[in-house]
Design a binder for these strands. Structure first.
Lengths: 337, 337
DNA sequence: CTGAAAGCGCTTACAG
DNA sequence: CTGAAAGCGCTTACAG
């Protein structure tokens, strides 16, 4: 058995107009607030629709205005990444401001080089604009959206010209974190995690370099390990870092950090006594770790809020800043004491 | 600056009809496959729209058929839960089958007792049906959707009458896990985690009880700790379990399990030598734990697939099973050796 | 097999 | 201040 109860048949603008003895035009104006209308008439209409719980059909409204009142959001599909709370939280942020502006969020997944889902959504006229939740140095999604001329922006930075972007200031964040660690007396700070083709990784590496330069510390590529996706590679990376005599390991995300911590535990290396550790994102995954882990904090929810608000501005034809950089916090905990 | 490039103006059915010297009716029929149409004409139309990359406007189609080709999905909003990979994976499952049937997924968040977002989406006519990703013993969302008569189903079981539901067989799963542990010689198996008002927790508790009964083991409520959401409460729960002399701790989800493992580590209790541990969900959070953790595995992606397929059946007016139960696997690892 | 026409529920010049 | 009418891009009886 499927569902049995019938949809109550929904009121339309015509019903309302008839009931009130006015024209559909008038009802429409009362609701939208556009166009001249007598305040008394307006009152009557609003009261009536209130009472009878009339809700305009957004589809029809959209058709008349050639809009959908939906925004699309492209979430990474690869498993390692989907687990990161960052995306969920950012998504919540997008969603909550979308709803507050009476838009809805349409979800799409996509791998680095697969535009099919995104293209389908755009070509089916299902969205007024798109938010890309992640950027690559070479990014087919960006290229596609540019070619379509549909409003969009990226969460995360990109080198593409003319693309609106909203991001945390990862470069400064990483620079500050590393500077602090250097000040605290660490000499050789190893880096592990991140994927080279992600712009965010580039920004962080730059921040690392900046901090080293400022402190007059030479850069040693043998203690920087990116593209260590699989667990085995992380373990290997840690081994190399140990061989190369680092006194601190900075992890580019919390998932990597968990593995690093496991590995150190396996090797019976105690944190922070024998090795300092810090991570990006102050996520719940690491929340209760012993020792607590020094990390950078980015407000993913606010990032989502800002991204969504900016996209809606673009959709409505307003000018927006090409690049919005949001802040960060360095949270010092036991793991670097 | 916002975006500059204009939308290329899109082809409409009228353009196609004109270009081919046929009526809109004919074009529509060629595309939908409904109604009689000469196979040659059909060819011509399909070829043309192929070549000129014409895509029908789903909005207009929807308006004419009073459909949206969207389904809504209600995700839990509370932070602790959003982190669980289960929901993401299930969401991916829903999304991928939705897309394969040319539907899109509209995202909504909601807390246990807050229907506003869901109601907004439904009343705005934005979806043809809804999937609830979690169920409560007393569930306002279910009550709301029933009252609206809109097609919906729940992922997870519910006691409400006449509600279509898709779920893994948590009761059997838990029964089997516990039975196996008892067979392996454990005497006092503690339970920790889960929220009492979730139906899934009830099912698992029932499975636990079943297994104990079958084995003739008495039930001791002092070693069952539900509603331990905050970290502190988990620690306390573990302490109580220790006091009460359990030889095995079964965690109702992996997030709780992480905290339990941390606590045991803090207390220098070694797993599995001094304490056995098992968990629900074989998620990546615990993937690399040492020792590896015995757990139940549910195929969340398939669950999403099935849920979505079932909802679409309902939407299209077909009969469906009221309750679909999917399987599980017990994965034995080091933590219970 | 094909088409003219009405309709889905809105918006918006245009006229009054 | 208000309304009749055309239009958004489709679908679908109905007629031929």
């Amino acid at each position: 058995m499927g569902h049995t109860k019938e949809h109550e048949k929904k009121l339309t603008i015509t019903d309302v107009a008839k009931a009130l003895g006015v024209s559909k035009t008038t009802v429409s104006r009362a609701i939208s607030g556009k166009g001249r209308i007598g305040s008394e008439t307006k009152e009557r209409v609003l009261e009536y629709i209130q009472e009878h719980n009339y809700k305009p059909n957004v589809l029809a409204k959209g058709l008349a205005q050639l809009k959908t009142f939906n925004i699309g959001i492209l979430l990474p599909e690869d498993y390692t990444v989907v687990d990161l709370p960052f995306f969920q939280t950012c998504l919540i942020g997008v969603q909550e401001t979308a709803v507050s502006m009476d838009y809805d969020v349409l979800l799409t997944m996509g791998k680095e080089n697969d535009c099919t889902q995104l293209a389908r959504m755009v070509e089916n006229h299902k969205v007024d604009g798109v938010i890309l939740m992640r950027t690559f140095t070479k990014d087919p999604h960006i290229e596609y959206l540019k070619s379509q001329g549909i409003p969009f922006l990226t969460v995360g930075s990109t080198y593409y010209q003319g693309v609106v972007q909203v991001d945390n200031d990862h470069q400064s964040a990483c620079r500050e974190l590393i500077s602090i660690l250097l000040l605290k007396g660490m000499k050789r700070i190893g880096l592990i995690g991140g994927i080279e083709s992600h712009v965010v990784t580039q920004s962080r590496l730059q921040g690392y370099v900046d901090a080293c330069k400022m402190a007059g510390v030479p850069i040693d590529k043998s203690i920087i390990h990116v593209n260590v996706e699989k667990d085995m590679m992380i373990e290997l990376g840690v081994e190399k870092l140990l061989e190369n005599g680092v006194d601190c390991i900075v992890c580019l995300d919390d998932a990597v950090c968990i593995h690093v911590l496991n590995k150190l535990r396996k090797e019976s290396i105690s944190v922070p006594k024998e090795m300092k550790v810090a991570s990006f994102y102050d996520s719940s995954i690491l929340e209760n770790n012993l020792p607590s882990i020094t990390s950078l904090y980015f407000d993913a929810r606010e990032l989502g809020n800002v991204a969504c608000k900016t996209l809606l501005e673009i959709i409505e034809g307003n000018q927006v800043k090409m690049r919005t950089l949001l802040g960060y916090e360095v949270i010092l905990k036991e793991s670097t004491k």
